[in-house]
Amino acid sequence: MQIGFTLPQFGPLAHQAGEVARFAAEAERLGAGSLWVGDRLLAPVDPTVGYGGGDSIPEVFRSRLDPFALLAVAATATERVRLGTNVLNAPWYAPAILARSLTTIDQLSGGRLLPGLGIGWSPEEYQAAGVPMHQRGARLDECLDALEALWTSNPARYEGEHWRVPATYAELAPAQRPRPPLYLAGYAPAALRRVARRADGWLPVCVPGPWEFDPATVNEPMRLIRDLAGKAGRDPGELGMVLRVYPAPGTSLDQVVETLTRAERETGAGHAFVEFMNIARTVDEALEQAEKILRAAGVRSRG
């Protein structure tokens, strides 16, 4: 299994922005297969919808760094690791702006970008982004179409209900051809159908700590996605999967390693990454934990 980690982005780790390049380079040396960023815009004082279905927003989101800037730093500090987004809330961004940012990162990294897109859940963040939340599904669908046009046509243009790109020369494409692989997140029926029809892969999630890992939470939706993909005329075997491992506060490294081991054995997941925001407060602590996780999983250092 390839094992990756999140870059220092939220909570106390966000206050160590000057350490992002060092973290990225050292994580790669330790044997990490990928590095990831999230996409939080606000930490509302009185949220309409809380995080993870709750009624509040975790304190770690009160400090946050920009995902595109962090990926650019990581791209220039590393040579081999994949660089992923977990996940960009695509409806917040005009597709032309999103395409420019992602193309830049894919070029900087020599073709190592793995963009994961989603629609988010916070009404306050949508208000701050100036985008109607009730349009988020339709805007994501149009964004996927517009990205395809901008990345595979020259001149490129797109006309949709919510997004429009006038005819433009598009002579700089991503390093990956015909485009970077696009992964989508979500468990709602519409989200799973979108993965089956439109995506190169799915981003399921598990939360070590309070709950024992249940492989059915990954296997059953993935089986449905592949069934729907086949009915849509796609090859189900070409759909990838990257497991997002979000340890709850207080989760031990043994629990994280057990989750990774079981996921590989019981779901066939060949790629997973661990979110550090709840289990590390400093970059050095995060690197120490990354090394322990990689060694326990049998991953060898590259240095």
Rank of each mutant, 00 (worst) to 15 (best):
L253M: 12
Q255M: 03
H134S: 12
H134P: 00
R234F: 14
R234E: 09
K231Y: 01
L140Q: 09
G137R: 04
P208S: 05
I225E: 01
V131C: 06
E171H: 13
D235I: 06
T261Q: 15
T152D: 08
R265C: 00
S252L: 01
Y187N: 10
G230W: 10
D214F: 00
R244V: 12
S252R: 01
A146E: 10
E142C: 01
I225M: 05
Y246S: 07
P210A: 12
L228C: 06
E161N: 00
A170P: 00
P215C: 08
L203Q: 14
P236D: 08
T152F: 09
W151V: 09
A196M: 13
F213M: 12
V165Y: 02
R157W: 12
R198G: 02
V195E: 05
R164T: 14
E212K: 02
R136S: 01
P181W: 09
P204T: 09
T152Q: 05
Q176H: 13
M241Q: 14
D214S: 01
D200G: 15
T261W: 07
P174A: 11
R198T: 08
Y158M: 05
L203A: 06
G240A: 05
T251S: 10
P189C: 10
M241F: 02
V256Q: 01
A146T: 14
A229H: 10
T251V: 04
K231P: 01
A185W: 05
T217K: 04
L224N: 02
L182V: 15
W163T: 07
R197I: 06
L203Y: 12
L182D: 09
L228P: 07
L228Y: 04
